[in-house]
């Protein structure tokens, strides 16, 4: 029984970190589409103060302000691209958790695939070269000797 409060507070703690944005003033949307967009935007934008959290998870003052900004823009009818543009204009590409595809991010996007291709090539080449080394067949006398030893 004494374990229960500890367990409960642990669960509560986990629950609260995931839902810190629930501490904001309740937000009302004109339609479910806006609400879905709001959820998407605050999950994809990084909080600049606590850099490893997105806006949805962060309790920082700035994250609250940026959630409010996102909300205001959505309610006034702005779309996903406009909100992302607004944030990138002010905080740079760093604010995006999903980096955009452009020359500077080509390595970021394609290095994993390039490495996979490289790995597969190396493995295939090595297995082939091993297969290429055909074992020399045993001569008749050698075969007899093998049979004798195995008996």
């Amino acid at each position: 029984m004494s374990k229960f409060p500890a367990f409960a507070s642990l669960m509560l703690g986990l629950f609260m970190t995931v839902h810190s944005f629930a501490l904001d003033a309740p937000k009302e949307f004109a339609n479910p589409e806006q609400e879905r967009l709001y959820g998407q935007v605050i999950r994809e934008l990084r909080c600049l103060v606590c850099q490893n959290q997105n806006l949805a998870d962060s309790n920082a003052d700035l994250a609250q302000d940026l959630r409010r900004k996102s909300y205001e823009m959505i309610v006034s009818g702005k779309g996903y691209d406009e909100i992302i543009h607004f944030m990138v204009q002010r905080y740079g590409d760093f604010v995006l958790y999903r980096p955009r595809l452009k020359p500077a991010t080509l390595i970021l996007w394609f290095a994993p695939f390039a490495m996979l291709v490289l790995l597969v090539t190396v493995v295939v080449a090595r297995t082939r070269s091993q297969k290429a080394r055909h074992p020399v067949p045993l001569s008749h006398s050698e075969k007899l000797r093998v049979d004798k030893l195995l008996k």
Binding site: L62, D65, L66, R90, Y91, G92
Partner: peptide, 13 residues
């Protein structure tokens, strides 16, 4: 007071 101008200037620290 609202921090809106701060946001416009990309202030985070």
């Amino acid at each position: 007071e609202s921090g809106d101008t701060g946001v416009d200037y990309g202030v985070y620290g």
